[in-house]
């Protein structure tokens, strides 16, 4: 399988007054054709910045300082801005957490969608409108013809997210990057969106990077999962493997911190401490201060181990099933 996206040793740093903030640090991964990859981590782990880096959306003081991002073989980082614009929104689309921030409140949904179509394809307004209407219908918005003339505030949160998905689908991209798209939604609405996304990704053969802090959602949706901690991918592999037999202590810590992991009423098993400040990360393994398995060797950088489709960065990986 040829990968749609191949990220090699990506590092995105922010040059702040208080020092260099390594938001993404030496991250490598691939996304295969029609593959759904879940990118999980807690706040500040660098999962969103990874998504932004792929699309060239990192603003100063942030900068991609190293690495390659190969999209269908072409390095996006070496691409001139004009060429990048033909890819962004057309071949790679993005869906954000809060659709109210991505939709223009003073333009009707139809105007914004027609604009998106015409930005990449020279088609008539009528045809662009037709395509916009079809896209709205596709994501399950009732009476799409009338809704084209509605403004974002006239939609509910779930419907707005459907509009954002419809816009992402307008050009049938090869890859969609979705950054916490259901986090702000209620359970019953989240379920509807997940249902639609799964159906559409399958129907159009799109690859998907699903960024989320919710392991439950990723478990239900993704084929492969990557766990990020403090700017690094600490573990990656097939969803079933990673969730049933986590190798990295952080992954197993996350899994046992959820309420469902212990019998009702018993104390939960949180990961002790809190994530290190991205400005002053400990040397070596960034997790070692919170890790029960840490020894002296963890002060040195753990190398990425790759075995049987699993990747992890740890000197003392768990072996066998989760505790």
């Amino acid at each position: 399988m040829t990968p749609v996206l191949e990220v090699k040793n990506l590092s995105t740093h922010f040059m702040t007054r208080r020092g260099i903030l390594k938001a993404v640090d030496d991250v490598s991964f691939t996304v295969g054709e029609r593959e759904i990859v879940g990118l999980v981590g807690e706040s500040g782990s660098g999962k969103s910045i990874t998504g932004f880096s792929i699309l060239g959306l990192v603003d100063p003081p942030g900068r991609v300082v190293a690495g390659q991002i190969l999209f269908n073989g072409d390095d996006l980082l070496k691409m001139p801005p004009a060429a990048m614009r033909t890819i962004r929104g057309k071949r790679i689309a993005m869906i954000f957490q809060d659709p109210m921030m991505t939709l223009n409140p003073v333009l009707s949904v139809g105007t914004q969608m027609i604009e998106t179509v015409q930005a990449h394809d020279s088609v008539s307004r009528a045809e662009a409108r037709q395509r916009s209407r079809d896209a709205l219908g596709l994501v399950g918005i009732p009476s799409p013809e009338e809704r084209l003339d509605s403004y974002p505030h006239q939609f509910s949160g779930g419907m707005r997210q459907r509009v954002a998905i419809a816009i992402a689908l307008l050009h049938r991209p090869d890859l969609i990057i979705a950054d916490e798209p259901t986090t702000a939604l209620d359970v019953t609405i989240q379920s509807q969106i997940l249902f639609e996304i799964k159906r559409l990704a399958g129907e159009f053969g799109m690859a998907l990077i699903w960024i989320s802090h919710d392991l439950g959602v990723v478990a239900a949706l993704a084929d492969r999962i990557m766990v990020m901690y403090a700017g690094r991918v600490v573990e990656a592999g097939q969803v079933d493997g990673v969730l049933t037999e986590p190798r990295h202590p952080y992954t197993s810590g996350l899994l046992s911190a959820v309420p469902a992991a212990v019998p009702r009423g018993e104390p939960l098993r949180p990961i002790p401490g809190f994530a290190p400040s991205p400005l002053s990360r400990p040397s070596g393994c960034a997790f070692r201060d919170r890790c029960a398995r840490a020894t002296e060797i963890c002060a040195t950088e753990p190398m990425l181990e790759i075995a049987a489709g699993r990747e992890f960065r740890c000197f003392h990986p768990h072996v066998g099933r989760a505790a």
Binding site: Q192, F195, G216, V217, V239, V258, A260
Partner: peptide
């Protein structure tokens, strides 16, 4: 409809 790690349910049957 609550996705959990334990179920790892692959299909969704949302209420409309």
């Amino acid at each position: 409809e609550l996705p959990t790690v334990a179920d790892r349910r692959r299909t969704f049957t949302p209420i409309k």
